[in-house]
Amino acid sequence: MTRPARLQLSLAIEPLPLKAPFRIAGYCFEAMPALTAILSEPGHYGRGEACGVYYLGDEPTSMLATLESCREPIEAGIDRLQLRGLLPPGGARNAIDCALWELQSQRERRPVWELAGLTRARPLVTAFTLGADDPDIVAAGARAHAQARLLKLKLDGEVEADIERVAAARRARPDVDLAVDANQAYTLDRIEPLIAALSDHRVMLLEQPFARGREADMDRLDCPIDVAADESLQGLDDVEALHGRFDVLNLKLDKCGGLTEALLIVARARALGMKLMVGNMLGTSWAAAPAFVLGQRCDVIDLDGPTFLAGDRLRAVVYRDGLIHCPGDVWGGGIADADDDAARAARTTAAVSAAPLR
């Protein structure tokens, strides 16, 4: 039996400053640091990026330490199935999993979407997200996103202010679909006025109203619109318990640990008759591209993360007419450059540690 090829693992942390502070319930972000991982061998490489899961303390520094401790089995030629046994769900596993997908794509000269069982990869209508700001700022943001077909509003749990935000967005953009994300900010005894307002303003989706661990409260929630689980869903093992309580599952590669796990969740959720959403953690196009592959199997797409950053990759996803487009040369296109293998591998490694953003 042929032994797997030995790989070279290169890791780096990038600061990823935002264009402007971004507010959600309980947090204000000015940057979203990310861990980048490159797995390379002569002639091929694979890239992965992960910001982690901030509310679980899953951050780039801890992810870096985790992967350094696992360097030997990873470089020995690990596959995605073995990776699921080596690391738990989270950002560290996501970075390596995505790198392995692209590495396979280059080895077989086939795009990742084809490896994932798709017949094509089409542009997707994506949400554009507005922070939990004053209603006038929300309205201005809604108007500024003139191309948007779907807007998502962040809520902060202040009922009157949240209702005003929703009303302001709807007045500014009567033509678009609206979704809202409470980020765990509500309790069962305070949410009724918000639910009524969401219905009045034709909001299509309410994301994670209650705290993670309070999923049983969903049994007593009377809500005429779809409700999505985000923080309540981390990996495949959570799906069964959420069935019957949530209508939609929001998949993020950083939470579940990569595209491999996410596709398993898709299969199980569809078997249960659940809808699916894909999001990401504000990363660059290296994070958005594998999520774009996952988005081909989802009902709601929320992949505007790169638009919040002060800079993105030189080869980046494209936002046009309310859709996200992902050219093959961004990530996972299936064919490496045709020049000298050693020189290419050296340039790829240098690109992460030096100046990967424009």
Rank of each mutant, 00 (worst) to 15 (best):
C223S: 11
A185C: 08
L35I: 10
F292Q: 02
R297K: 09
C51S: 10
D97K: 10
A336H: 03
M204T: 11
V138T: 04
H243A: 15
M218K: 07
G157I: 13
H44N: 08
D136V: 11
D337Q: 09
W101I: 01
D302Y: 12
A76N: 14
V125I: 15
D222I: 12
P224Q: 12
E75L: 10
L103T: 09
F22D: 03
E108V: 05
T2W: 02
L272V: 11
D175T: 08
N94H: 09
T61C: 06
D238W: 09
A127L: 09
A139N: 07
K152E: 11
A338Q: 14
R110F: 00
T284I: 06
A34H: 02
A31C: 08
I301H: 12
F246Q: 04
A229Y: 05
A271G: 15
A211S: 13
L124P: 00
L253W: 04
V138K: 00
D329L: 03
P193M: 12
R110T: 15
G258A: 08
P89H: 04
G157L: 11
A132W: 10
G141P: 05
D339K: 02
I96M: 07
Q234S: 10
D299K: 11
L86D: 06
F128V: 05
A229R: 02
L87F: 08
L81N: 09
Y45G: 01
G322I: 08
G43W: 03
V318F: 00
E41V: 14
G305D: 10
I265M: 12
P42R: 03
P60K: 13
A12L: 00
T126K: 09
D181Q: 07
H201L: 07
A50H: 01
S10Y: 00
Q106T: 00
R47V: 15
V176Q: 04
A267I: 04
A50P: 01
S199Y: 06
H243K: 14
P193C: 11
T307A: 14
T284C: 12
Y55A: 03
N280V: 00
V227Q: 05
A144T: 12
V239C: 07
I163N: 04
Q184D: 07
N183E: 06
V112D: 00
L194W: 03
V330C: 06
G26N: 04
D181F: 02
Y54C: 03
I74Q: 02
I225M: 15
D341R: 03
R171M: 13
E30A: 13
D299A: 11
A350C: 09
E102N: 10
E160T: 15
W331Q: 03
G85H: 14
L11H: 13
R220T: 12
P224T: 14
L198Y: 04
L81T: 14
R268Y: 03
P21C: 11
G283R: 01
L357K: 02
A229W: 03
A95I: 08
K275C: 07
D226N: 08
P17R: 13
Y45T: 05
I96K: 03
V300K: 01
E231C: 10
L236N: 02
W101R: 01
P88V: 12
F210K: 05
I137M: 08
F29A: 10
L303Y: 02
A25K: 03
D177W: 05
E68Y: 09
A92E: 05
A267K: 15
L272K: 12
P111H: 04
L9Y: 02
F292K: 01
P33Q: 09
E59L: 15
L233E: 04
P60S: 10
G213S: 09
A167K: 07
L303G: 06
